[in-house]
C-alpha cells in the first residue's frame, strides 16, 4: 500500500443533535426571509438581505446535511467548481442582457 491510499472513508458525520439545530436554524432563516418580504421598511435592501439569507441556508444544508464540512475536499471541488462557473455565467448573462443599455454605450443600439 502506498502512502497515497488513505484507508477507507472516515465517517465524520454530525450527530443527530447537530442535525436538529441546523434544522431549527433553517426554519428561523426562512421565517426571517418571509418576514423581510412583508416588512415595507426592508424593501430598499430586500434583494441583498434575501440573497444573504438564502446563501446562509444554502451553505447550512450543503455543509451539514450534505456533510461537505467534514468530508473529502474532492467533493467540495466537484460541487464548488461548477457552482462558481454557474454563478459566473449567471452574472455575465445578467450583465450582457440587463446592462445592455449602459454597456452598449457608444453603440447606442437598443
Amino acid at each position: 500500500m502506498s502512502a497515497e491510499r488513505e484507508g477507507t472513508e472516515r465517517h465524520a458525520h454530525p450527530t443527530v443533535g447537530v442535525y436538529l439545530r441546523v434544522g431549527a436554524a433553517l426554519v428561523i432563516l426562512t421565517v426571517l426571509e418571509v418576514g423581510v418580504f412583508y416588512v415595507p421598511a426592508f424593501h430598499v435592501v430586500l434583494v441583498p438581505v434575501l440573497l444573504v439569507l438564502s446563501s446562509a441556508k444554502f451553505t447550512l444544508v450543503v455543509m451539514f446535511y450534505m456533510h461537505l464540512k467534514d468530508d473529502n475536499k474532492v467533493f467540495t471541488f466537484l460541487l464548488g467548481g461548477p457552482l462558481v462557473i454557474a454563478v459566473g455565467v449567471m452574472v455575465a448573462l445578467l450583465f450582457l442582457f440587463l446592462g445592455a443599455l449602459t454597456l452598449r454605450g457608444a453603440a447606442g443600439a437598443g
Partner: peptide, 14 residues
C-alpha cells in the same frame, strides 16, 4: 454523485 450535482448546478444555473 457529487460530479452529477456539480453538473446540475449548470442546469439549474441556466
Amino acid at each position: 454523485f457529487w460530479a452529477f450535482i456539480g453538473s446540475e448546478c449548470l442546469l439549474f444555473g441556466s
